[in-house]
Amino acid sequence: MNAKSISAQWRPAAILGLLVLLLIAPFVLPTYPLSVLTEILIFTLFAMSLNILLGYAGLPSLGHSAFFGTGGYAVGLLAKYLGTPAPLALLIAVVAGIALALITGPFVLRTHGAYFLILTLSLTQVLFGIVWLWRRVTGGDDGLPGIPTPKLPFLLGRVSDTANFYYLTLIVVGIAIATIAWVVRSPFGLALVGIRENERYLEGLGYPTWTLKYVAYALAGGYGALAGGLFAYFKGFVGPGQISWLLAGEGMVMVILGGAGTFWGPAIGTILVLLLRYEVSAFTQRWVMILGIVFILTVLLLPQGIVRLPNRIREIRAQLRREAPLPRPTAPAHHTPSERAVERVIERS
């Protein structure tokens, strides 16, 4: 029995254990750590939604905060102008996120790699600008304060308000994460990994790669907006900072730290980044620097993320023992420069 199937065996038990811990957390934790935990849940959803693009489909988006902010503003505007109840408002937030993705998708998906990165960033900045300047509706840089925190009716009076919103977040995020798990383990999810690995090869197997990317982009947008909507309720406020590209960059770092393309990696990365921010800042002002050092160390030592740390250790130990379980790959087929040039022209077109 190999390591993978052993961990697969334990997976249900581990998830159950985690769930129990999360359920009893409000009875154990004081208010402040509980609100940090709430934030971790929300950003885990954000990072996991981004991971659909970064990790699975291999699309390096630096503009995912656009969806987060869209969800936040959807919730904020609905609460301010219409007093929409939370479940409906969150649903509309998701729809708004998907809509934004469907509108911008045809443009950004024309590009690849670094270009994709910068185009998603540009569009996010434009959205940021619209929100910033359209003061009459969005409140400009003052944002929209006073968003009432929704509460679970069946828990009213039984637990504190913080715990009540925590449970609400846990339910929404839990359901969302379960559906993400389902998406990435479906044939669609496997196809996305194929796109990341080599889009052209996948197309050669008869997959409509563009459509797949478009759907992935829309899904990521929807989940990202859901996280943003929850965050707006959590803070009771939505402002341009929730669209800022710095947030997108932080999301990207969360995903990479934990392990892009792994299911639980983004959760680990989120916990790490947020704990660094809140805990380290409590005893040193230099937490920004420490965060920067963590980023760099991750890239250098664990480019595949913390989640893959056990694998990495196993690899290193195997190397030390000079185990070579399989023959080394032979040298790639001979290519003349002209053939390669033609191949690359094809890749580009």
Binding site: I256, A260, F295, I296, V299
Partner: peptide
């Protein structure tokens, strides 16, 4: 992705 992560770290 790693380039962004690393240079962002340097920027921080």
């Amino acid at each position: 992705l790693l380039q962004v992560c690393l240079t962002l770290g340097v920027a921080y």
